[in-house]
Amino acid sequence: MTRHVIDKPKERHPEIRAREYVRLEREAGPHRAVTRLHARKLGARGMARLSQFLRIERGHEA
């Protein structure tokens, strides 16, 4: 049995499909791994590195 002329799937461009997937992911909220990274403690070494990066960003060089 053949299909009817109007029984064709809608043609959607790959860009539109990808954009919709990204939109759905964004609306679902941040990924679990991202929230874990934001919640973890830096520790002594991490704080030292952070302070050095901030010092360089402010323009204070050694």
Rank of each mutant, 00 (worst) to 15 (best):
M1Y: 07
M1W: 02
T2I: 11
T2F: 14
R3M: 06
H4P: 02
V5K: 08
I6P: 01
I6E: 13
I6F: 08
D7L: 03
D7W: 02
P9K: 03
P9T: 07
K10E: 15
H13I: 00
I16P: 00
A18T: 04
E20G: 05
E20A: 09
Y21G: 06
V22W: 08
V22D: 12
V22E: 15
R23H: 08
L24R: 13
E25R: 09
R26V: 08
A28F: 02
A28P: 00
A28M: 04
A28Q: 06
G29L: 06
P30E: 11
P30Q: 04
H31K: 10
R32M: 09
A33K: 10
A33L: 15
A33I: 11
V34Q: 12
T35E: 14
T35N: 09
R36M: 15
L37N: 14
H38M: 14
H38K: 15
H38A: 15
A39H: 01
A39C: 02
R40L: 07
R40Q: 13
K41W: 06
K41V: 03
K41I: 01
L42M: 14
L42R: 10
G43P: 01
R45C: 02
G46N: 02
G46F: 03
A48T: 04
A48G: 06
A48E: 09
R49H: 04
F53T: 08
F53E: 15
L54W: 06
L54M: 10
L54R: 09
R55F: 00
I56W: 12
E57M: 10
E57P: 00
E57D: 05
R58G: 04
R58L: 07
G59W: 00
E61W: 08
A62Q: 07
